[in-house]
Amino acid sequence: MALSNSQYEAIIKEYERTRYSNHILTENRREEVYRTIPGFQELAESISFLSVDSARRMLEGDELAQKSLHDKLQEIVSRQRKLLTQYGFSADYLKPVCNCADCGDTGYIILDNGTREKCHCFRQQEIRLLYAQSHIQDMIERENFSTLSYQYYQGDDLRRFEAAVQLSRKFVQNFNDEYENLFFYGTVGTGKSFLSGCIAGELLQQGHSVIYFSAAGLFDMLARYSFDAKSKELLYDLCEDLYGCDLLIIDDLGTETTNGFITSQLFSCLNERYLRRKATLISTNLTLEELRDRYSDRIFSRITSHFALCKLTGADIRILKKRLAK
């Protein structure tokens, strides 16, 4: 699914604003250091003098000029780092600031063959615009590991939630090295969507592409594109994104009206992501028995065989919070 011209231009302009803002921040840091550390500015300016002098010497045939310049620059950098730390700054305080180190806030990376391709940060911007991912963005700002609380759980419910948190943290920690899928199930309002948001937020910060859909929203979009002859290209692009993103979150599985089409689409999605070794996270209020009865044996087998199952139980936290607020 391609971006419109206006959507593409909006992303590019956002990158331009980010680079300008970070440039100003870098310059402000430089001025702060110059004001704070005596002699630091002169030390920094000496680099230009050394570079010009070295270039002159190389033109005159001095074969040692380049090595001499390298050694002197290394000495200056070492002195700068030492001064920075002595005056309470980090050693890399004057390193150019950028939000994405991979593309330098340009949105594109250069491959070994010289071609350009969209950076992972650009792809997440695309996902945000194309699939209305504002819900997950809003959710992870409110609900993340830093706002996690155990106060609403007791007994076995608490032990299950603690295990789910540990599993979620391990999932994030090992995401780059181990292929794993998660299946959160259990009673309403026990933290399944909350933990999904925690995981999404951590992986987004690491630069991974994450697509979030409610089950009803996902299958509604698939149905609209599948049964509209004019939307075949849109369907292809949607499926490629669903199959290829680093993490696909399907929230509230079972709230959709299940039929043969949905069952087929769900299996295709799970199977293709399994073949591509792409992680999937599913949350549902269904029991395992209800999952087996509602969907095909293939889906039940795929989930119980290739997902880490995590059951959450307890009272509805949303209701508890409302009561406490009153």
Rank of each mutant, 00 (worst) to 15 (best):
A2Y: 12
N5F: 14
K13R: 15
T18G: 10
N22S: 12
I24T: 12
L25D: 09
N28E: 14
N28C: 09
Y34W: 08
R35W: 02
I37P: 05
G39C: 07
E42C: 11
L43E: 04
L43I: 05
L43D: 05
A44G: 10
I47H: 04
I47V: 15
F49W: 06
V52N: 13
V52D: 14
L59A: 14
E63Q: 12
E63M: 04
Q66V: 09
L69T: 07
D71S: 14
R81V: 13
C100D: 03
I109S: 08
I109G: 11
L111S: 12
N113K: 04
T115C: 00
K118W: 00
F122R: 05
E126F: 12
I127R: 00
R128G: 11
L129K: 06
L129F: 04
L129D: 07
L130N: 10
S134F: 10
H135Y: 15
I136C: 11
M139W: 15
E141A: 10
E143S: 10
F145D: 03
L148K: 14
Q151N: 14
G155I: 05
R159W: 07
R159K: 14
R159E: 14
A163S: 15
V165E: 15
F171E: 04
Y179D: 14
V188R: 00
G189R: 02
F194P: 03
S196K: 02
A200T: 14
G201E: 00
L204E: 00
Q205G: 11
H208L: 06
Y212R: 08
F213N: 07
F219S: 09
L222A: 11
D228R: 03
A229M: 13
K232M: 05
C239H: 15
D246N: 01
I250N: 00
L253I: 11
G254D: 06
G254H: 05
T257F: 15
N259L: 08
G260D: 10
I262H: 01
I262N: 06
S268P: 07
S268V: 03
S268W: 08
Y274H: 11
I282Y: 01
N285C: 02
L286W: 12
L288Q: 15
F300M: 08
S301T: 03
S301W: 04
R302S: 06
T304Q: 01
L309S: 11
